[in-house]
């Protein structure tokens, strides 16, 4: 397994990048060169230097410090919202697809209601009602994101429930729950992983967009979206601010996408060569 993982370039690059970003977020207090809110009016819009690795913003606050602390906010919102959305959506999709009939009809009409709203508008409305903050932004993103999982998992389930091995499991006395979670769910992990990693990127972008619009995590919290948005005010003379925040967002989204691609490839046992692991003449034909 590890060998195969190391031979997959997108997994290695995505994994290293993701790990670096996560570690930077976790150890932000140790890696910071300044304090997050320390202003320095004499060093506004400084270019990168040995004192300020990524330069400073309009108040002279150290950008490196603000980016790694911002990673904590962006990553926690992305992880909370995407994992909850994936869990909720997958269960809805599995149940709707497996049972069909009125259960399917009901669950999918509910999904359609959520899908009926433009995603960002819906998220904005929810944050407007709940108020800004990490948790509320996450809730808003869960509400927006779960429908995608429900629809994808449902359509996969519609195909999978007709498979002979589902009948075979039934013939062995498996209950509905066992069939759904042991037979069907493992066969849907491919699309779920792809959606999840793409979703992590989208969640970071959405959080940035909400912050950009002033509906995200409020300042003085050092969010990437706010830094990007605020930077646009000075973009003619001092584009540095937006570029650094934008790069942080782009690198993180890229890291998740690469990781997702790689994971999907190695987690699907059908991609195992017929020679298999250990490979002791494991495909002797005609047993």
């Amino acid at each position: 397994m590890l060998k195969r993982a190391l031979r997959n370039p997108s997994l290695v690059v995505g994994g290293v990048l993701t790990l670096t970003i996560v570690l930077a977020a976790v150890f932000a207090p140790l890696l910071a060169t300044h304090s997050v809110d320390q202003m320095n009016m004499r060093a506004r819009f400084a270019m990168p230097s040995s004192a300020h690795w990524l330069g400073t913003d309009n108040f002279g606050r150290d950008l490196w410090t603000r980016i790694i602390f911002g990673a904590r906010i962006s990553l926690s919102i992305a992880l909370i919202s995407v994992s909850a959305a994936a869990a909720i959506g997958s269960v809805v999709g599995l149940v709707a697809g497996y049972f069909g009939g009125w259960v399917d009809l009901l669950l999918m009409r509910i999904t359609d209601v959520f899908l009926g709203f433009p995603a960002l508008i819906l998220a904005l409305a929810i944050v407007a009602v709940l108020g800004p903050g990490v948790l509320n932004v996450s809730i808003a993103l869960i509400v927006v994101f779960w429908t995608e999982y429900a629809r994808v998992v449902r359509s996969a389930t519609l195909v999978l429930r007709e498979q002979a091995y589902v009948s075979a499991a039934r013939a062995l006395g498996a209950s509905h729950g066992r069939i759904i979670f042991r037979e069907i769910l493992p066969n849907t992990v491919g699309p779920i992983i792809v959606l999840t990693t793409l979703g992590l990127g989208t969640a970071i972008l959405s959080e940035s967009a909400l912050s950009f619009l002033g509906f995200g995590v409020p300042p003085p919290q050092p969010t990437w979206g706010w830094t990007l948005a605020y930077g646009t005010r000075f973009i003619r003379g001092e584009p540095w601010l937006s570029i650094v925040a934008g790069m942080a967002i782009m690198l993180t989204v890229l890291a998740f996408n690469l990781l997702g691609d790689g994971l999907r490839d190695i987690l699907d046992p059908r991609q195992l060569s017929r020679a298999g692991r250990g490979s002791r003449n494991s495909t002797t034909h005609g047993s």
Partner: peptide, 14 residues
């Protein structure tokens, strides 16, 4: 118990 006709499709691929 039951044995099915096509063993490839009657076994869970993952």
């Amino acid at each position: 118990g039951m044995i099915f006709q096509e063993p490839l499709t009657a076994l869970n691929p993952v």
